[in-house]
Write a protein that binds this DNA or RNA. Structure first.
Lengths: 324, 324
DNA sequence: TTGAAAGCGCTAACAC
DNA sequence: GTGTTAGCGCTTTCAA
C-alpha cells in the first residue's frame, strides 16, 4: 500500500490539509511545521498521488503526444525532445501511434481526454472539423498542420523544397518527378505547391506522381511510373519514400545518382548514412517549441499563435547532373 | 466542463451507481435500464474519468515504458509494438527516456508510480538493488535484463553473437575485435561472453575493446584502438557503434568490407539500408511479449517467468574474407 | 497558521 | 435490479 497524505499527517502530528499545503502552497505554512512535515514525508517515502490531486485541481500534469507512426524515423527525435522538455516542467507524456488512421487517432484522443491537460498532434490526419470538435475537450497544439484557430508549430518544408528544386535545376535537370505523400498531409500540400512554383521559375517540368504510401514500399512501388515519365531526378515526400525508390532503382540495375538523382525530405539518420540529399526538418526543435506552446496555453490560458521553423536542403551524394 | 456520471444519471433518471454499473459491470443491470443509460451517455458524449475510477479501483489503466534513448533506432519498433498491444487491452502508455542515466530512470519511475499499474523497463541501467526496491511500488517487467525474481523478456543476443563469430571465422578471420557497450548492459555482458566462447571454439583471437558509448560517436572513437590491434574484423555492441566505426574507417581511406569486416547488432532499418551484416533483435515481438507478461502480472497477480527470444545473424555486404 | 469539512468523479459494499 | 452510503487521496473553502 502506497503511503498517503494521511500517513504523513499522522507521523508529523498535523492535519492532512497542512500536509497538502506544504506540498502545493508551501508559503502558507509555518517554516517549522513545514520542516517537520517534509521530514516525515521524506522518511516515509511519500509521493503525492497525481491522479487524486487531478481530481480536485483539474490538472493532471500529463500530456498526450499523438503521432502517425512511431517507427517512422522522422518521429523519434521529436518524441524524445518533447518528452524531455515536458519532463523538465514536471509533466508526463502519453505517447500513442495512430498507424496513420484518422479513426484510431480520434478514438485515442477521446479516450485520453480525461487524463491529460493537453495534447500534441503531430502530422495529424484528422479533418479540421474533427480537430475543432475535439479541441473543445482537450487543448491542442498541432505540428505540421494548420487548422484555423489552433496554435501550431510548422516546419516550413516549402523553403527546403524550393532549395531542392533549385539545386536540381542548377545541376541541369529539366524533368523532375515529385513523389507525393498522403493527401491529408499539410507537409505534402506545401511540398507540392512549393515544388511546382519553383519548377516553373526554373523552367523545369514537374511530374507529379502519387499519392504514395509514406513508406519504403510506397517509394519502391512508384518506380515504374517514375521511369515512364522520363524524369532525370526525383523529389520524394520523405526519406523513407526516397530510400525505397533508390533501392528499387538499384535492383533494376539503375545507379543513383548517375542514372537518376533522388532527394528526400526529413533528414533522418538513415538518410545521412545512405548519403541521401534531403531537406532537413528541425524535428527536435519542433518538439520543444510545441511543448512550450502547449504548456503556455495550459497554464496561462492564452492561445499563442504559430511558430514557423525553417527547413533547408542538405546536399549529399544522391544528386548529380543528369546522365548524357 | 466535462460531462460526468452525474449528468448521465440525471438524464436517464437513475442513480449514479446504476450508471457506474452499466459501465463497469453491465450484467448487473436490467437490459432496458442499461439501454437508457447508454443512450443518455452517448447523447451527452460521456466518457468515464479514468483517474477518478483509478482512485477507487486502484487500477489506472496506464502503463509506463522506460527506455534509455527513444532516438536510438533500436527502440522505436519496440515502443510502437508495446503501445499498440497495450492499447488493444485498453491501456495507455507513458513513454519516458532516461538518457542512459540511472538517476533519471529512478526518479522517472518514482514519479510515475502512482499513475501506472506497471512498467516496462527496457535495457534498464539501474542496479538490481534499486530495481528490487522500486518493484515494491510498481510491478515491473524488464526487457534485456535479468534481475532475480522479476519477469523478463530476453532477446538472446548470445545465439546471434555466436553465429556472427562463426561467420567471421568461416570467412577466414583470425583476429576479431569486439567493440563492447555499457558495462551495465545485460546485452553487452552476454555479447562479450558468447563472442569469447565462440572465438575460442574457432581458434579466433578476440580483442575486447571498450566500454564504448553506444552511439555512432562511440564507434568512431574506437577506430584507432581497433586498428592498433591488427584485427581484420569487428563485432560491435550495436548498429550505431558499427556504423560510426564504418564511417570513421571510410574517412580514413579504409574500405568495408575489403579492408575490414564489420558486424553490428540490432538489425535496425539503418543497418539494412547501409548493407550492414548484423544480428537481428526481435524488438517488436519483445515489446508485445513484455506487455503480455505485464498485463498478466497485473490482472492475475501471478509472476510469470522469463521469455527468451532468439536472435540470428543477417549476413549482408559489410563482411567478406580478410584482405591479402 | 492551522483544523474541519465538503467535494472532485467514480466504485463498492450493503440494504432494500 | 437499484438506491444509499462511504470512501479512494487530495485540495480548498471557511472558521477558528
Amino acid at each position: 500500500m502506497a503511503v498517503t497524505i494521511k500517513d504523513v499527517a499522522h507521523a508529523s502530528g498535523v492535519h492532512v490539509s497542512t500536509v497538502s499545503r506544504t506540498f502545493s502552497a508551501a508559503h502558507l505554512v509555518n517554516a517549522e511545521t513545514r520542516a517537520r512535515v517534509l521530514a516525515a514525508a521524506h522518511q516515509l517515502g511519500y509521493r503525492p498521488n497525481r491522479a487524486a490531486r487531478a481530481l480536485s485541481t483539474r490538472r493532471t500534469g500529463n500530456l498526450g503526444l499523438i503521432v502517425a507512426d512511431i517507427a517512422n524515423p522522422f518521429f523519434p527525435p521529436l518524441i524524445k525532445a518533447a518528452q524531455a522538455h515536458a519532463r523538465a516542467s514536471d509533466h508526463h507524456v502519453f505517447v500513442a501511434d495512430t498507424d496513420e488512421q484518422a479513426r484510431v487517432e480520434e478514438e485515442l484522443i477521446r479516450s485520453m481526454a480525461t487524463q491529460v491537460d493537453g495534447a500534441l498532434l503531430v502530422a495529424s490526419r484528422l479533418s479540421n472539423r474533427v480537430i475543432n470538435e475535439l479541441s473543445a475537450d482537450v487543448p491542442f497544439v498541432v505540428v505540421n498542420r494548420r487548422p484555423p484557430g489552433l496554435p501550431a508549430v510548422l516546419m516550413d518544408v516549402a523553403s527546403g523544397a524550393r532549395q531542392a528544386v533549385e539545386h536540381l535545376a542548377g545541376l541541369g535537370h529539366r524533368e523532375v518527378a515529385l513523389l507525393s505523400g498522403p493527401r491529408a498531409s499539410w507537409t505534402n500540400q506545401n511540398l507540392e505547391r512549393a515544388a511546382a512554383e519553383e519548377a516553373e521559375r526554373h523552367g523545369v517540368r514537374l511530374h507529379r506522381l502519387g499519392p504514395n504510401q509514406p513508406t519504403e514500399e510506397g517509394g519502391a512501388a512508384a518506380a515504374p511510373d517514375l521511369l515512364a515519365t522520363g524524369a532525370t531526378a526525383a523529389l520524394a515526400y520523405n526519406d523513407l519514400v526516397a530510400l525505397g525508390l533508390v533501392g528499387e532503382l538499384r535492383s533494376r540495375g539503375l545507379a543513383v545518382p548517375d542514372d537518376l538523382s533522388v532527394v528526400g525530405v526529413d533528414n533522418t539518420d538513415t538518410a545521412r548514412h545512405c548519403d541521401l540529399t534531403t531537406v532537413d526538418m528541425p524535428t527536435a526543435a519542433a518538439g520543444r517549441a510545441a511543448i512550450d506552446l502547449l504548456l503556455r496555453r495550459i497554464t496561462s490560458g492564452d492561445a499563442p499563435g504559430t511558430v514557423t521553423l525553417d527547413t533547408r536542403l542538405i546536399v549529399r551524394g544522391s544528386t548529380a547532373p543528369p546522365a548524357g
